[in-house]
Design a protein around this nucleic acid. Structure first.
Length: 401
DNA sequence: TCTGGGGTCCTAGGACCC
DNA sequence: TCTGGGGTCCTAGGACCC
C-alpha cells in the first residue's frame, strides 16, 4: 500500500521565528521585510550566517558564510543574535499543531517534520487538501510560513518541499518525477554534497536525470553503498519509514571555537573540562551511559584531528570521563595553535538496561571461557586441564578450527 | 577577507581470533 | 619455508545533513 507522506519545512526558520517573537514583544518592524540575517558573535569568532531573509538572499548572501562577507554584499544588512530558547518554543508550537493530524511525526530537525498520514486522512479529504490546510493554519495561528512537500515517500516529500519557496505546497508523485525532479542539477538531490559533485561531473552526470539513467551496478562500483543510495534517490526510490517514536541519541558532543587560538595546553585543558561537564550532564539527563570518549581539535589551519578510546565499562561519571579526555588531549596535542576543542561520548546505552545486562555479560564471558576449557579437556584429557593451569598450557596449545 | 555547532552514517586499516 | 581467509572489534577520518 502506498504511503501518504508530508514534509513540513519552516521558511527561513530562525529568522522567521525571531521576527514573530519581536512582533509579539511590541516591535513594529518585521525583520522578514528587510535585508536581515541571524548570525553568531563575530567577536568570539562565531561569525557565520545562520539564517537569512529573502531580501538578504536576493543579494547573494548564503547560509554558513562569514558575516564579514555578507556585510560586503549588503552594507545595510541588519544582524540579529540567535536564541535557541525561542526556536525551541516555535518548533514545539508547530509540532503540537501537526499532532492534530497524526501522531506519526518525525522531527527531522528543529525546523522540519515528516508526517505519515497513511490511514489518517479524514473522510473525503485528500493528502493535498490536508497539506493546504496545514499551510494555512500555521500561517494564521503561528504567524510564520512553511513549505509542504506531498508525496508517497520521505525522499520525494523532502525534495518537493524544497521546490519553490516560500509559503508553498508542492506534490511530487511518481508520474511527476520526470518533469519536476529530473531536470534539476544533481547538486539539488538530497545527500549529494560538494565533495561528490566533481566526481559525478567527471562521470558526465550533471542532472538528477543523468544519475537516474546510469546503471545501478555502475554507481555501486564507483561509490559503494553511497552510490546505491543516491541512484535510488534519483529514481525516487526510498522505503524508509517515518520514525515517530522518541529516539535516544547515539552520541552527545559539545565543542567550541575559542575566542583566539590557544597554544597553552593548560588553558585548552580548562576548556576541555568544562565541555566534559556539559556533556556528562546531558548524558545523565538522558539517563544513559557512554562507552566511548572522543576528543577533537581543529588547528588554526582548520585541520581536524581526533582521538577516541573505548572504556572498560560504560559510565556517566564526570571524573572518569575527564581523566580519559585529558589523556586523549595530551596524545593529540602536537603544539599546534588550537582553534576549536570538542568532546563527544559515543556508544550510548540506557542506564537501567546496562545495569541489568552487566550480569548477563559476565555470565556470557563465563560461558565462553567454559567452552574453551571444555574443548581443551576433550583434547587433552579431562583431568589435566584446570583454569589455574591454563596459562602454562597456552604456549604449547595452538587452536585449530 | 574568514570560515559554528549539533548530529548520523560509512569506510578503511590494523589487531586479534578461530 | 611458505602459507589462508573470514569475522569482529577498535580507531581515525570524512561526507553529509540542518
Amino acid at each position: 500500500m502506498e504511503k501518504q507522506i508530508l514534509h513540513v519545512d519552516v521558511n527561513n526558520a530562525f529568522l522567521s521565528w525571531t521576527a514573530v517573537e519581536r512582533l509579539k514583544n511590541g516591535e513594529s518592524l518585521d525583520i522578514r521585510t528587510i535585508p536581515a540575517i541571524i548570525g553568531g558573535e563575530e567577536d568570539n569568532r562565531h561569525g557565520i550566517v545562520l539564517a537569512k531573509s529573502n531580501l538578504a538572499k536576493k543579494v547573494g548572501i548564503q547560509t554558513g558564510e562569514p558575516i564579514y562577507f555578507a556585510r560586503k554584499k549588503c552594507p545595510s544588512l541588519q544582524i540579529y543574535k540567535s536564541d535557541f530558547g525561542v526556536y525551541k518554543k516555535y518548533s514545539n508550537a508547530l509540532y503540537n499543531l501537526l499532532l492534530e493530524y497524526t501522531e506519526k511525526i518525525e522531527r527531522f530537525s528543529i525546523d522540519e517534520c515528516f508526517m505519515d498520514m497513511t490511514g489518517y486522512l479524514p473522510k473525503g479529504k485528500t493528502l493535498l487538501q490536508i497539506a493546504y490546510e496545514i499551510n494555512k493554519r500555521v500561517k494564521e495561528e503561528l504567524g510564520f510560513t512553511v513549505n509542504i512537500g506531498v508525496a508517497h515517500n520521505k525522499l520525494l516529500a523532502k525534495m518537493a518541499s524544497d521546490f519553490q519557496k516560500p509559503d508553498r505546497v508542492h506534490t511530487l508523485f511518481k508520474e511527476e518525477i520526470e518533469t519536476k525532479m529530473w531536470s534539476l542539477p544533481v547538486s539539488e538531490l538530497f545527500m549529494v554534497g560538494k565533495k561528490s559533485l566533481p566526481k559525478l561531473y567527471k562521470m558526465g552526470i550533471k542532472t538528477i536525470k543523468d544519475l537516474s539513467q546510469k546503471e545501478e551496478s555502475y554507481m555501486i562500483k564507483s561509490f559503494g553503498k553511497y552510490g546505491k543510495m543516491i541512484w535510488e534517490y534519483a529514481n525516487g526510490i526510498d522505503e524508509s519509514r517515518v520514525i515517530y517514536e522518541e529516539e535516544k541519541p547515539k552520541g552527545i558532543g559539545n565543542s567550541i571555537t575559542l575566542p583566539y587560538d590557544y597554544s597553552n595546553i593548560e588553558k585548552i585543558e580548562e576548556v576541555l573540562i568544562a565541555l566534559v561537564e556539559q556533556v556528562t550532564y546531558r548524558l545523565r539527563s538522558y539517563n544513559m551511559l557512554a562507552e566511548v570518549v572522543n576528543v577533537q581539535i581543529k588547528t588554526n589551519e582548520f585541520k581536524v584531528y581526533s582521538h577516541q578510546k573505548k572504556l572498560m565499562m560504560p559510565t556517566d561519571n564526570t571524573k572518569i570521563i575527564i581523566e580519559e579526555a585529558k589523556k586523549l588531549l595530551y596524545e593529540l596535542y602536537k603544539k599546534e595553535r588550537v582553534r576549536l576543542i570538542g568532546v563527544r561520548v559515543d556508544r550510548l546505552s540506557n542506564k537501567e538496561e546496562v545495569q541489568l545486562s552487566l550480569f548477563d555479560n559476565t555470565s556470557q564471558k563465563q560461558n565462553k571461557l567454559d567452552k574453551v576449557v571444555d574443548t581443551l579437556k576433550e583434547k587433552y584429557g579431562y583431568d589435566k586441564i584446570t583454569r589455574a593451569g591454563k596459562i602454562n598450557l597456552d604456549k604449547n596449545i595452538k587452536f585449530k578450527d
